[in-house]
Structures are given as structure tokens and as C-alpha cells.
Simulated assay, not measured.
Amino acid sequence: MDEVRAARRGRGVSVGLDRDRIVAAARTLDPDTLTVQAVADALGVDRKAVTYHVSGRDGLLELLADDAFTARFEVVEIPVGTDWQTGLRLIASSMRDILLGSGAIVSHIRFDPSTRAAALHPAEIVLGTLVAAGFDETVAVRAIALVTDVAMAHARGVLLNARAGGHPQRAELHEALSTMDAAASPHLRRIDDAGFSTFDEEQFAFDLDVIIRGLEARLATP
């Protein structure tokens, strides 16, 4: 039995293990219960073979998250002839949808050179539409950065809100209002009582509308 186990397991180099094989194995496992040992078992190697390439559970989740983001953003296309407004919306929507699709691993996306490279092509196209419309390159880059930041924040808020108990900020607001006089903060109380949520499609559309209208006003100002 020991001989069979020894033949089955080995260090990362000796068994030909690499990051691609580790990612492929990790994709088949539940991110909530993902461990180095689980990946090692799925690959039929010793735990040390996996830790040779990636350190611990957090390292595994980062590797899995970056792979998911890169694979999905590489297929994002900005159609020829797209105006800058639509281009910004496409960049933001793609970022938001990819992050939402990443689910539990979204917080582990680190936006290292590989993930940033995946977004360069669509960003270059949208940057060109902004410059062609009359924005200078600095403002154009800031506009793209702004809509992607909004998309990231919205996606993370949606995922937090989907957890048991909802988004922690909503619970904190409710608790704070419960300690105050009933006549205080009437607007917030009505919003709280109605269960109003900012973690929906309407909020995301609102955010992008405000940004784009602001940019249009800036462009129209001599």
C-alpha cells in the first residue's frame, strides 16, 4: 500500500504539475470548501506538489479568480462603430457581469498584469472612441477607470446583499435608526421601512447615466 501511495504522489516538479493543471482541478471543486488538500486529492498528488506552485487556500482562490476573470474578459468585444457612451456602458457591464459570475471568489481577484492585460483590448477601443469624440487621453482614461470602479463596487455590493442577512450596511442602518427618536431621520426611515435596495439593475443603470451625463456636460463646456 505504501509503495502504491508513493508512486501516486510526488512533488510538483517530479510529477509534471503546473499552474494550469492546478486551476483545471480547482474549477471542479466548490470554492467555499476549496483547499490545497482537495486539489491535491483531485490531481492524485501530494499536498506539497500543489504548495510548490501556490501557497495555501488564499493563493488557490486568487489563482482561480484571476483565471476566471481573464478567460471571460478576453472574449469581450466592442463592435466597430460603437459610440463612446455605449462603449463605456459595455466596459462597465462586462466588468460587472464577470465579477458577479465569479461569485464567492470575487474578493480574491487581484488585477495583476495578466488580468489587466485581458482588459487592454476593449479598453483601447473605448479609449479611441472617447478621444475621437473630443476628450483628451487623460480624461478618457479617468472615465474608463471610473466606470470600472463603479462596476466593481456594484458587483461586490450585490454579492454581499445576496448573502444570508443581506448587506451589512442595511442591517447597520436599521440598527442605528432603531436607537434614535421615532421622529428623527424621516426620509431614511421611509426608505428603511420600504426595504429599498441599491443593489439592483436600476441602481447600476443610474450610476452609469450620471457618469455619462457628467462627461457629456464636460465635453460640451468650452
Results as ranks from 00 to 15, higher is better:
residue 1 M to L: 13
residue 1 M to W: 13
residue 4 V to C: 03
residue 4 V to L: 14
residue 5 R to C: 01
residue 8 R to I: 08
residue 9 R to H: 10
residue 11 R to L: 07
residue 12 G to V: 01
residue 13 V to H: 14
residue 13 V to D: 15
residue 15 V to D: 06
residue 16 G to N: 05
residue 18 D to T: 06
residue 22 I to Q: 00
residue 22 I to Y: 06
residue 25 A to K: 03
residue 30 D to F: 05
residue 30 D to H: 10
residue 31 P to K: 09
residue 32 D to R: 15
residue 33 T to M: 01
residue 34 L to I: 04
residue 36 V to S: 00
residue 36 V to R: 00
residue 40 A to I: 09
residue 42 A to H: 12
residue 43 L to D: 05
residue 43 L to V: 08
residue 44 G to E: 02
residue 45 V to K: 02
residue 45 V to L: 05
residue 48 K to A: 15
residue 49 A to T: 02
residue 51 T to S: 14
residue 53 H to P: 00
residue 53 H to R: 11
residue 55 S to M: 04
residue 57 R to D: 07
residue 58 D to W: 03
residue 60 L to A: 01
residue 62 E to A: 08
residue 63 L to Y: 10
residue 63 L to D: 07
residue 68 A to I: 01
residue 69 F to M: 11
residue 71 A to L: 09
residue 72 R to N: 12
residue 73 F to K: 09
residue 75 V to Q: 14
residue 76 V to R: 02
residue 78 I to T: 02
residue 79 P to Y: 06
residue 84 W to Y: 09
residue 86 T to P: 04
residue 94 S to N: 03
residue 101 G to N: 06
residue 101 G to D: 07
residue 101 G to P: 07
residue 102 S to C: 15
residue 103 G to H: 09
residue 103 G to A: 15
residue 103 G to D: 13
residue 106 V to G: 00
residue 107 S to W: 09
residue 110 R to Q: 10
residue 111 F to Y: 15
residue 113 P to T: 09
residue 114 S to T: 04
residue 116 R to L: 11
residue 120 L to Y: 12
residue 121 H to A: 14
residue 123 A to V: 01
residue 123 A to E: 11
residue 125 I to Q: 12
residue 125 I to W: 00
residue 126 V to Q: 09
residue 127 L to Y: 06
residue 127 L to W: 04
residue 129 T to C: 05
residue 130 L to H: 11
residue 132 A to W: 00
residue 133 A to K: 14
residue 137 E to P: 00
residue 139 V to C: 06
residue 139 V to P: 03
residue 140 A to V: 10
residue 141 V to T: 14
residue 142 R to W: 14
residue 145 A to S: 12
residue 150 V to A: 11
residue 153 A to Q: 05
residue 153 A to E: 12
residue 155 A to W: 03
residue 155 A to R: 06
residue 155 A to Q: 07
residue 157 G to T: 03
residue 160 L to D: 14
residue 161 N to Y: 04
residue 161 N to G: 09
residue 164 A to W: 06
residue 167 H to Q: 08
residue 167 H to K: 10
residue 168 P to Y: 04
residue 168 P to L: 00
residue 169 Q to C: 09
residue 169 Q to W: 11
residue 170 R to T: 12
residue 171 A to P: 02
residue 172 E to G: 03
residue 175 E to S: 11
residue 175 E to Y: 01
residue 176 A to L: 10
residue 179 T to K: 13
residue 181 D to W: 04
residue 183 A to E: 15
residue 184 A to S: 13
residue 185 S to L: 15
residue 188 L to N: 07
residue 189 R to V: 03
residue 192 D to A: 15
residue 199 F to W: 15
residue 201 E to Q: 11
residue 205 A to T: 14
residue 206 F to Y: 14
residue 209 D to C: 07
residue 209 D to I: 08
residue 209 D to W: 01
residue 212 I to D: 08
residue 214 G to P: 13
residue 215 L to F: 12
residue 217 A to M: 04
residue 219 L to K: 03
